[in-house]
């Protein structure tokens, strides 16, 4: 039951230590995979050549890529197992599950962007943008790991699953390379914008390093969660008004 005093705290905890470590590990693996992987995809370009030659050759680049891929495999697998276990047995709130409201939030926000409504969508713990990214990482991770393993051990695929058509290998390659491109672009354009360049967080959204988020941002970005935690109902207000007055003065108990 939310305590009465909670609305007074300056910061709200958002991520525990394990989530933070998980994110940083994923980020490092992602960067290494992108560098070694895109160099292989665009093997003709001079940048790729520079990277591969400095790594110590194509074989080393592939080796690093594959073992980093194993790190991603472990990260993805443990996350899926722990999250499923938590949701099923420990009754964690399935906050990442996409629901009907996410779709209406998209429409509400678009309306807001175009000036058709006065207020943006009121989101819960994770808004639809974050859910989109989360599922992108989970599904993309699974796809990349699976297709990566097929490309790493092409002969074993047919030993273990002789019923598979031969084109599974080139199809795996096509999936791997396209999905990689998609993931890379989404991260570079969308994630970097939202966590670095977005005017709301610029110069950096520090929540993934500190694990906490300010009350101001909480009210602003996750009003539904704020209300649930504090038990304080927020007035639907124009966000521009936030800048002038203190947050607590507008709280309606």
């Amino acid at each position: 039951m939310p305590g009465k005093e909670k609305y007074k705290q300056e910061y709200f905890t958002r991520f525990n230590r394990w989530r933070i470590i998980e994110h940083q590990a994923n980020a490092i693996a992602f960067v290494v995979l992108v560098i070694t992987g895109l160099s292989q995809k665009f093997h003709d370009s001079s940048v790729a050549e520079w990277v591969i030659m400095n790594i110590g050759g194509i074989d080393k680049a592939r080796l690093i890529h594959r073992y980093t891929g194993l790190v991603l495999l472990v990260l993805t697998l443990q996350h899926i197992i722990i999250a499923s276990f938590g949701v099923i047995f420990r009754r964690w709130a399935p906050t990442m599950v996409i629901n009907r409201k996410d779709f209406t939030d998209v429409i509400d926000n678009l309306k807001y962007y175009f000036g058709m409504t006065e207020w943006p969508a009121r989101c819960d713990r994770f808004d639809y943008k974050q859910k989109f990214e989360y599922w992108g990482v989970v599904i993309g991770g699974v796809l990349m790991v699976l297709t990566g393993l097929i490309l790493w051990f092409p002969t074993l695929v047919f030993r273990w699953m002789p019923f598979l058509p031969g084109q599974i290998i080139p199809a795996a390659k096509a999936t791997h390379t396209n999905e990689a491109m998609l993931a890379f672009l989404v991260i570079v354009i969308w994630h970097i914008y939202n966590s670095v360049f977005s005017p709301e967080v610029f110069p950096l959204d520090t929540s993934i390093f500190t694990g906490r988020i300010s009350r101001e941002r909480m009210i602003h970005e996750h009003p539904v969660e704020y209300e649930r935690i504090t038990g304080v109902a927020l007035e639907k207000r124009h966000p521009a008004a936030d800048d002038e007055a203190g947050a607590d003065s507008k709280d309606v108990v």
Partner: peptide
């Protein structure tokens, strides 16, 4: 080179 290649392995070359 791929000593453990199954009979249908060459099919993977499209």
């Amino acid at each position: 080179c791929h000593a453990d290649a199954a009979d249908n392995f060459p099919e993977s070359w499209i």
